[in-house]
Structures are given as C-alpha cells and as structure tokens.
Amino acid sequence: MLALLKSRAWQLLALVLAALLLWQSVGHLLALRAADKARADLATERAAAAAAAAETSERYRKLEGTYRENLDTIARESDQAQARATADANAARAAAGRLRGDLADYITANRAAANARAAAGQCAPDTSALDLFAELQRRADERAGALARIADDARSRGASCERGYNVARALTKFD
C-alpha cells in the first residue's frame, strides 16, 4: 500500500509539474504575443511620429523661406526708401543753396544801395543787422538739414525694423 501511495504521489507530482509547465508555456506564449504587439505598436507610432516630424519640418522650411523672402523684400524697400530720402535731402540742400545765393544777391544789392545812399550823403551804411540775419539763416538752415537727415534715417530704419518684427511675429503664430 505504501508503494502504491508513493507511486500515486509521484504521478500526482508529475501531473502538477506538467500543469505548471503548461501554464508557464502558455504564459510565455502570451508574453511573446504581447511583446510582438508592443513592437508593432511601437513601429507604427515611430512611423507616425516620423511622418509628423517630416510634415512639421516641411511646414517650417516653407515658413522660413517665406520669412526670408519677406525680410529680403523689407531690406529692398528699406534701401529704396533710404535712396528716396537721400534724393530728397539732396534736393533740399540744392534748394537751400539757391536760397543762400538769393540771400547773398539781396545782401549785395542792399549794400550797394546803402553805399549809394551814403555816397549821396543821405545816411551812413549799417549792414550789421543784415549780416547777422544772413548768418542766423545759414546756421538754422544747416541745422534743420542735419536734423531732417537724422529723422529720415531713424524713421526709415525704425519702419524696416518694425516690419521685420511683424514678419517674425507672424512666423511664430501657430494655426
């Protein structure tokens, strides 16, 4: 009887071990299946991420191209505005030169008339006020021209900077 009981115990132990081995094998197969599914999911996610990255990269490449084109346009227009301002300043300097010439002609004529009156014995020539007026007008005109050049330059550069900032700001806005 003891031998029968021992043989049954060994059989029962073998069955339990076989069941545990089967259970472990099934668990291993399920783990392998889950690992394969995880690998497939990971590959799918990587492909989707790569496609999204490529799409985003292309969108930013186009945005950068647009930004560079806009900056080139702004620089070109700024140069044109600077050239116009320089031409206007040159025209203003020419007009100021003509005005100074007219003033010099007037002063010459006034001095000649004053000298003629003095020669006729009417009064003594006093041209100091006229000379002072001519000098003040010349200085004021030169200073106004210098300030106008500074203001034109600052306005043109400020407008270019503002437009460049607006283009960069538009670039950073996301849809």
Rank of each mutant, 00 (worst) to 15 (best):
A31L: 11
R117I: 03
E142L: 03
K62G: 12
G101Q: 02
A40P: 15
A48P: 04
T66L: 04
E58S: 00
L103S: 05
S160D: 04
R84N: 00
A54I: 13
K37L: 09
E45A: 08
L99K: 12
A104I: 01
R143Y: 14
A104W: 09
G145V: 14
A49N: 10
A31Y: 15
C123F: 05
A54S: 03
T66M: 09
Q137P: 03
L130M: 06
N90Q: 13
Y60V: 06
A87G: 03
L32G: 13
R93K: 06
A53Q: 15
D36N: 11
A54E: 06
E64Q: 10
R98H: 10
A47G: 08
T86G: 02
R59G: 02
L30R: 11
A43V: 14
E64P: 05
A83E: 08
A89E: 01
R84E: 05
A35H: 15
A83N: 01
A140Q: 02
R46S: 11
A40G: 13
L29W: 10
A109E: 10
Y60M: 08
L99T: 08
L99R: 04
A34Y: 08
A40L: 11
D102I: 11
A54Q: 12
A34W: 07
D72S: 10
E55G: 08
S156K: 00
A38H: 13
R39C: 04
A129S: 11
R163G: 05
A49H: 10
A85H: 03
R84M: 07
R59K: 13
A83Q: 03
L130W: 05
L132I: 12
S57Y: 01
A154P: 02
A140P: 01
T86H: 06
T66D: 10
A120E: 14
D105P: 03
N166R: 11
G27N: 09
P125D: 05
G101R: 04
L71K: 06
T44Q: 14
E162C: 09
R157A: 10
K62N: 03
R111W: 00
N115C: 04
G27C: 15
E69P: 01
